[in-house]
Computed example of a mutant assay.
Amino acid sequence: MKKLVLLLSIVFISCDKNIEKLNLEIDSLKQKNDSLLKITNALEDKFVFDEARINVVPSEKNSNKLGSKYEGTFVIEAYNKSDEVLFSNNLDDSNELVNPQALKNDDGVYPFEFKLTQKENRVYFIIKNSNSIGKSFDGIIISDKAD
């Protein structure tokens, strides 16, 4: 009987030490989790990038004559691979793009072209962004003058 009591005492003592170690590890993991939650919660109301630079670069080949083709690139310096850019050189009365073209993303550079039909031509771009973290935006219109 004494051997049984001694054996049970040893088992309980070793279990108690393991429980203590596990409790310390749990506390450590809770602190790490709380830190990660603070970071992810801070991102929920922000864009993944806080500033974006956008530039429309006309091609050097442009003659700027009526009826000629006008080429350029639309450059976003802060972008995501999932971003979508639509292009048109016409807006309707409700500020919607007329016959928009989806531009191909080449690391934030979106080549475009259209035919010059007037002395002063406007170009319009809509950026659609959908992030898995942070805020997303759907339809920021940017315009520029091509002449």
Rank of each mutant, 00 (worst) to 15 (best):
L66R: 14
L66E: 09
L66A: 11
G67Q: 08
G67F: 06
S68H: 11
S68W: 07
S68Q: 08
S68K: 14
Y70E: 08
Y70I: 15
Y70A: 12
Y70R: 15
Y70K: 14
Y70W: 14
E71I: 06
E71S: 15
G72I: 07
G72E: 02
G72A: 04
G72N: 06
T73R: 13
T73Q: 13
T73A: 10
F74M: 10
F74W: 08
F74S: 06
F74Y: 15
V75C: 07
V75W: 01
V75A: 03
V75K: 10
I76G: 01
I76S: 01
E77C: 01
E77W: 02
A78Y: 00
Y79C: 01
N80T: 15
K81M: 07
S82W: 02
S82D: 05
S82C: 02
D83C: 10
D83S: 09
E84N: 07
V85A: 05
V85Q: 05
V85S: 11
V85H: 03
V85G: 07
L86E: 10
F87T: 02
S88N: 08
N89Y: 11
N89H: 14
N90L: 13
N90M: 12
L91S: 09
D92E: 03
D93R: 13
D93E: 15
D93H: 09
S94E: 04
S94F: 07
N95A: 11
N95I: 03
N95E: 01
E96D: 11
E96G: 04
L97Y: 06
L97S: 03
V98K: 06
V98A: 00
N99K: 10
N99W: 03
N99A: 10
P100V: 09
P100L: 06
P100D: 02
Q101R: 10
Q101S: 10
A102N: 13
L103A: 04
L103Y: 02
L103S: 03
N105S: 11
N105L: 13
D106G: 02
D107I: 00
D107T: 05
D107Y: 09
D107L: 13
G108F: 09
G108P: 05
Y110K: 11
Y110E: 06
P111G: 03
F112L: 03
E113R: 09
E113N: 12
K115I: 15
K115H: 09
L116G: 03
L116Y: 01
L116H: 01
L116W: 00
L116P: 00
T117W: 01
Q118M: 09
Q118S: 15
K119W: 01
K119H: 06
E120Y: 08
R122S: 09
R122T: 00
V123S: 10
V123H: 00
V123M: 08
Y124I: 00
F125P: 05
I126P: 00
I126H: 09
I126Q: 13
I127V: 15
I127W: 10
I127N: 12
I127E: 07
